[in-house]
């Protein structure tokens, strides 16, 4: 009987220099973001005094992409998640709000990681991006409904966004600490 000899992989399974591997990694992260989006929508948070609050776990995946992969991956996962969520669940009224919020959050994420990567920790980045996400959503609502009255909701959303962003930031730090480098793409040093 012929024994099969084991040949270990010559490169890390997470090496995304190969286009196919890069696509697979993006697909995996997108699926994760979609699952998180769906799960957090099912959570019964109506007992909270703050209406419209979301835990923001999908944003955790986008921030993870930005830190560990690159900003292009983070943007593609973020936009694709918003689009597919609207297609899957048919909630097109929320599509423009979600898209605007996601783009606002990504813009701030890109700015922070480009200019303040060594100054602000993942905790601060998550909190700031969550606040930017809510700001973007309200701006989209104000433009679509042609009324600034929607901003009466802003202080509540800002507080809720900062709290949920802090929670996802804590999770982000724990995640970076827990995952071994063999399953992570090596972040390019000094570049976002």
């Amino acid at each position: 009987m012929t024994m099969m000899k084991y040949h270990p992989p010559t490169s890390s399974s997470a090496d995304t220099r190969h286009p196919a591997r890069r696509l697979a990694m993006r697909g995996l992260l997108l699926c994760l973001a979609l699952v998180f989006s769906y799960l957090e929508a099912q959570l019964p948070l109506s007992f909270l005094p703050v209406p419209g609050i979301r835990l923001g776990f999908a944003n955790l995946v986008v921030t993870f992409c930005a830190y560990v992969c690159d900003l292009k991956t983070a943007l593609s996962v973020s936009v694709a998640r918003v689009l597919i969520t609207a297609l899957l669940f048919g909630n097109w009224s929320a599509f423009w709000f979600s898209l605007c919020g996601a783009l606002f959050a990504f813009a701030l994420l890109a700015l922070l990681l480009t200019f303040a990567r060594n100054t602000v920790s993942p905790l601060g980045v998550s909190a700031a991006c969550a606040a930017a996400h809510n700001t973007g959503q309200l701006l989209a609502a104000a433009v679509l409904m042609k009324s600034a009255a929607v901003f009466s909701y802003y202080p509540v959303l800002l507080i809720a966004g900062t709290v949920t962003g802090t929670l996802t930031g804590i999770l982000m730090i724990l995640l970076l600490r827990a995952l071994p480098p063999s399953v992570l793409v090596k972040a390019k040093k000094g570049t976002p």
Binding site: A116, N118, T119, S121, P122, L123, A127
Partner: peptide, 28 residues
């Protein structure tokens, strides 16, 4: 030994984080 990736990033509640929270508070 798995590398602690958190050493590549600033520690939580560093000066930058405090500045972010201060800006959010002023905005609020």
């Amino acid at each position: 030994h798995p590398k602690d990736r958190t050493k590549e990033y600033p520690a939580p509640l560093c000066r930058g984080d405090r500045a972010v929270y201060l800006i959010l508070l002023l905005l609020l």
